[in-house]
Design a protein around this nucleic acid. Structure first.
Lengths: 139, 139
DNA sequence: TCTTGCCCTAGAGTTATGTCGAGGGTTTAT
DNA sequence: ATAAACCCTCGACATAACTCTAGGGCAAGA
């Protein structure tokens, strides 16, 4: 009926260490323990851990994820706060996507230069220019 | 003809501390010094710092950026290595973009639930289910 | 010339996110 | 009943990427 920490590690791709670390940081307050003190993860727990991983993948800080988890634990009264938090994260993701698109353009621009037949010549000319600029700056 | 570290900080958005840190890490071997030992940045320096920032924004590690800078400093003989390095980074960016798109879908899915008129009801039902699942797991 | 503001280095301190080892209890299969 | 394989906590260690402080030199205006 429940999963051990090892099984959850395998299912999520997180290490056992990381899961325990997350628990210590207050990200997993919903995880129960058995008589021996072992963590017992339910299917629902896996679902919210999945959400935690999703937020993590968008570079949300652990302290902010804890805030979200706390809202979830607090029940429906915090829906407004959850919307605010997720909307802010949504905006961050959109911004990051846009930035990545621009970064990609620059990388492709560089790759095009390097992969062109005139690459060696282009680079040598650039190096010459840099050299002259450095020389000129010494005056 | 050249820029001070403060001016470069303003132009790039990096802090003076960060610029000096990057220099210490070997990311700025091309920056010259004046008689007093002050760094003097040329226009070309700004250009490669821009590239460094671009790679940084795609989460490339400083040690890998240093590798790239070293290749650039070494001249046209390293074009093949630069292509390999940038191509690998390109693949990483594409993967990250795809992941962000998926994360965004999940965030939007959650937001839809929270913003629907039945949000409170949906959440209370989910909480009830979680509760029962936890109860059942105790047996 | 004196003050203010900028520059330098070396190295300590910080933050975030893990990762691991020691010491000890539990479960399972033989 | 015993070994192997788990689980636990606590706290130390690691790593990356800054961030800042102390102590001291340089530069430009009043």
């Amino acid at each position: 009926m429940t999963y051990t920490i090892k099984e959850v590690a395998q299912k999520t791709g997180l290490s056992i260490y990381t899961l325990r670390f997350y628990d210590k940081q207050g990200l997993l307050p919903f995880v129960m323990r058995n008589e021996a003190g072992y963590r017992t993860f339910t299917e629902s727990d896996l679902s919210i851990i999945h959400t935690i991983c999703c937020l993590k993948n968008t570079d949300m800080k652990i302290s902010d994820i804890r805030q979200y988890v706390d809202y979830v634990m607090a029940g429906s009264a915090t829906i407004g706060k959850r919307i605010k938090l997720l909307s802010a994260q949504r905006a961050k993701v959109l911004a990051k996507q846009q930035q990545l698109t621009e970064n990609l353009k620059e990388i492709d621009y560089k790759l095009n230069i390097y992969q062109s037949p005139e690459a060696v010549e282009t680079i040598n000319q650039a190096r010459q220019y840099v050299k002259e600029e450095k020389q000129a700056s010494k005056m």
